[in-house]
Nucleic acid binder design. Structure first.
Length: 498
RNA sequence: GGCGACAUGGCCAAGUGGUAAGGCAGGAGUCUGCAAAACUCUUACCCCCAGUUCGAAUCUGGGUGUCGCCUCCA
């Protein structure tokens, strides 16, 4: 498996530091406002990576932090006449809800910055002791000139940074590029913690160094986040951690591209952001995930209504394959096929080999999977693995899902139920690895609606038997007008919300 | 100014040097009482110029254009 590493700027074969264990850290959100589509892209991307690594058989520890102490939170609290804690907990709740609705899996550990203040102070102390940091007036700064490798990750050199007009100058810093590890409170009422340098709060970058060390160790496999974090955030984290512990901080740095809107980056400062909730009001989680995964994770992706609509239509086709086959052969058969295939797929994913040594299992597979599609299924599946192994080429992986859907529909139309079951079973399996839920209805109706629909369809069935097309079409048209679509299939009629 | 990314059909998008996956939209057909869905077929001189090569979307150089980071940002 190859992963593009930001530091070396190339694809590198992925090898975990320790056996099959993967330690993965993703920079989480600062909870000071509603989560937007940019967050959706970021966390869906890393969720996909997490799911795929697990599928490959790795024992993944996935840490995604919550930044709940920060100037932006404090400012928001002042503006809204509330406390930083209230702001953080309010937006944290919104974030959690959005992640859940997007079918983003829960990380292994989701630590909060405020629960790791002592760990941060310890690192700062270590840095001061080692001479990599200095304190002035209750602040503590990292002395960039002491860390030779500074700039390695983002390929910046200190001189150029100084020359850039955007570096904040400050009288108390030794060097304009030095960054804050600890910031003294301005007055005693402000949010802060005691430290050897007085009451204050941590700088932005130190939290990730502290949490990464605490939950994963001094050197980790993967550290990921949005590409805007490369500099200065990740550069600074790296400097702190490596200076403090004297070890490489991260083996593979990964960064996702941005969501753009009208050719511009979507961001809070540009005020052009669309919240996740806005999008969820119109499109479901599958459509949003599809929209994001049709682009390679490192490329920018342009948000607009047509793109989301196209994604929605694409998902619909995949879901139709599942639903059409389900109507014909039943959910149990699909589930059975999927369970059987899971064994095969999991083995191939982990070892790259067809598990011929599992004689009993393989015999069962060969008996149950029609020979005519066995080969196709394995080839499709291997293509899927190859695509994903190539730096998570999800656009290619999606193309393979469409091939599986096509295989299922063709088999269904030829009345080859077994083949259809296995094609759709492999489609469902792969869709789950990518975090889709093809079984989910777009909108859930209540029990009464379901029963009413059964009744209406029943009555219409009788009308159609009498060839009263005028009335049966009228029923269908009226339902369409309320947003319910009827599909007359062979001997069954199904319905769904538009 | 420094660092970096991208330019492929109407739109989105993949692409390992040997003449272009896939999706959306459109068109035609099959199926269906009609629809819907599905299935089949259907449209590309890969931004420009030069070079390397038997051969380049793919490599090199030079343009042009768009975007990002260097200040908070996923």
């Amino acid at each position: 498996m190859k992963i593009f590493d930001t530091q070396s700027q190339k694809l590198r074969e992925f090898t975990p530091l320790e056996d099959d264990k993967v330690k993965m850290y993703v920079c989480g959100p600062t909870v000071y406002d509603s989560p937007h589509l940019g967050h959706a892209r970021c966390y869906i991307t890393w969720d996909m990576v997490y799911r795929y690594l697990k599928f490959k058989g790795y024992d993944v520890t996935y840490v995604r932090n919550i930044t709940d102490v920060d100037d932006k939170i404090i400012n928001k609290a002042k503006e809204t006449d509330s406390t930083p804690e209230e702001i953080a907990s309010k937006y944290y709740a919104e974030f959690e809800k959005a992640m859940q609705e997007l079918n983003v899996s829960q990380p292994t550990i989701e630590p909060k910055a405020t629960e790791n203040i002592n760990e941060m102070v310890d690192i700062i102390k270590l840095l001061v002791d080692k001479g990599f940091a200095y304190s002035v007036n209750g602040d503590a700064y990292f002395d960039v000139s002491k860390f030779i490798k500074y700039g390695r990750l983002s390929r910046q050199n200190i001189e150029d940074l100084k020359a850039g007009a955007r570096v904040e100058t400050s009288d108390i810093k030794k060097n304009p590029v030095d960054f804050a590890l600890w910031k003294a409170v301005k007055d005693e009422t402000e949010l802060g913690w005691q430290s050897p340098w007085g009451k204050g709060r941590p700088g932005w970058h130190i939290e990730c160094s502290a949490m990464s060390k605490r939950y994963l160790g001094e050197t980790i496999d993967i550290h990921a986040g949005g590409s805007d974090l490369i500099f200065p955030h990740h550069e600074n984290e790296k400097a702190q951690s490596e200076a403090a512990f004297g070890k490489d901080f991260v083996n593979y740095w990964m960064h996702n591209g941005f969501v753009r809107i009208n050719q511009e980056k979507m961001s809070k400062s540009l005020r052009n952001f669309v919240t996740i909730q806005d999008v969820l009001d119109k499109y479901d989680a599958n459509a949003i995930r599809f929209f994001i995964l049709t682009n390679h994770y490192r490329m920018p992706v342009d948000f607009n209504d047509e793109a989301l609509q196209a994604a929605k239509n694409g998902v619909k086709r995949l879901k139709n394959a599942y639903e059409d086959v389900k109507v014909e052969i039943g959910e149990e058969k699909i589930q059975e096929a999927k369970d059987l295939l899971s064994f095969l797929f999991d083995e191939i994913a982990k070892t790259g080999q067809i598990p011929f040594h599992r004689i009993d299992k393989m015999q069962e597979l060969e008996e149950k999977i029609p020979a005519e599609i066995m080969n196709d299924i394995i080839i499709h599946f291997k293509n899927f693995i190859a695509a994903m192994d190539d730096d998570f080429n999800t656009p290619k992986a999606l193309a393979i899902m469409f091939e599986m859907a096509n295989c299922a529909q063709k088999a269904r139309q030829l009345q080859k139920d077994e083949s259809a079951a296995f094609c759709v079973g492999s489609l469902v399996k792969i869709s789950e690895v990518l975090g889709f839920d093809l079984k989910k209805a777009e909108k859930a109706g209540d029990e009464v609606t379901a029963q009413l629909m059964d009744l209406i369809i029943d009555i219409r069935h009788m009308v159609r038997k009498e060839k009263n097309w005028a009335l049966s079409d009228k029923i269908r048209d009226r339902l369409t007008a309320i947003g319910i679509t009827l599909k007359d299939q062979k001997d069954k009629t199904t319905w769904s919300f538009q």
